[in-house]
Design a protein around this nucleic acid. Structure first.
Length: 275
DNA sequence: AACACCGCCTGAGCGC
DNA sequence: TGCGCTCAGGCGGTGT
């Protein structure tokens, strides 16, 4: 997309549009057929893409005239390019852009937990992202340790909080804690003494998951529409009741911070982490 | 500060 | 076959 001119082809519904600092400050209701000029501008109509950036789970398309559009996929969102001769637009496609003369970009999100967030410029983007902690692929072990030390919640909850570290969701928190040998209920403050092990595990998990194209449970596909293979490599997530590949103990699940949490009582029951 | 709970949505998978 | 129920990758708001 970089270097290409994009034009807004259509907006399905307006309630997927958020505002900086609040993904769900949805203006408007339901669907409307005509976007006003300001909205079309905000959604990068006529822009030339200068770069694509990311922080944590949020992506942004940056135009050469300063306009920025943040894209967050939520749980079921997809951002996929297609040949513009492809007439089969998937259901729940909320926005479409042409890319150059032959391709198009589609934002599709059945559950509508995702969002498109227009920002006026880089300053607004940075203040929007200031609500997030350091990116999981940039944070140092020391920074992670400090962030965990100041939290009194279970380490599972702290790692899931995007203000602690940006980029981990439910799957990768569980996988990270398993690899590090840390029980999800360990208090974050205490877990901070194992920050090195957690950091090493997190990086290893994320690098492997990226290399495998991500974890597709049902919806996730990459920009070309391809699913990721990492789910087959999960050691705990989605494996409740099955045997741990490392120690043979049965994987268990419980609810922590309102989220289903899978862990191995054998590998993660000890006080000292595995690494 | 931290936590529990709810709402937002659709679709898949299950038991009956 | 079809119904109703539960659950899901996220996040934000409210009340305790």
């Amino acid at each position: 997309m970089v270097g290409q001119r994009i034009a807004l082809l259509g907006i399905g519904r307006h309630d997927i549009i958020g505002t900086p600092g609040n993904l769900r400050a949805r203006r408007g209701t339901g669907s409307s057929t005509h976007a006003d000029g300001a909205l079309r501008r905000a959604l990068l109509h006529g822009a030339t893409v200068s770069s694509l950036v990311r922080h944590g789970k949020q992506m942004a398309i940056v135009a050469d005239d300063g306009r920025v559009l943040v894209v967050h996929l939520g749980m079921s969102g997809r951002l996929v390019t297609a040949d513009n001769r492809d007439r089969e637009v998937p259901p729940h496609t909320h926005a479409r852009w042409s890319i150059g003369s032959a391709r198009e970009l589609r934002f599709t999100d059945p559950r509508r937990f995702g969002a498109l967030v227009p920002c006026a410029g880089d300053t607004e983007l940075q203040s929007h992202w200031a609500g997030l902690g350091p990116d999981a692929m940039d944070i140092s072990a020391e920074q992670l340790g400090h962030a965990l030390a100041s939290r009194r919640t279970p380490v599972k909850v702290a790692l899931l909080d995007q203000q602690t570290v940006a980029g981990l969701g439910n799957i990768y928190v569980d996988e990270t804690l398993h690899r590090a040998g840390i029980h999800p209920l360990m208090r974050s403050t205490r877990a901070s003494t194992y920050a090195e092990a957690i950091w090493t595990s997190m990086r290893g998990i994320l690098e492997a998951a990226i290399a495998a194209g991500g974890s597709t449970l049902r919806d996730y596909v990459d920009g070309s529409g391809n699913p990721g293979a990492y789910a087959t490599l999960h050691r705990v997530y989605g494996r409740s009741g099955k045997q741990c590949h490392q120690c043979g103990t049965h994987i268990r699940s419980m609810v922590v911070g309102g989220r289903t949490t899978a862990f191995c009582p054998g590998c993660q029951g000890r006080v000292r982490p595995a690494l």
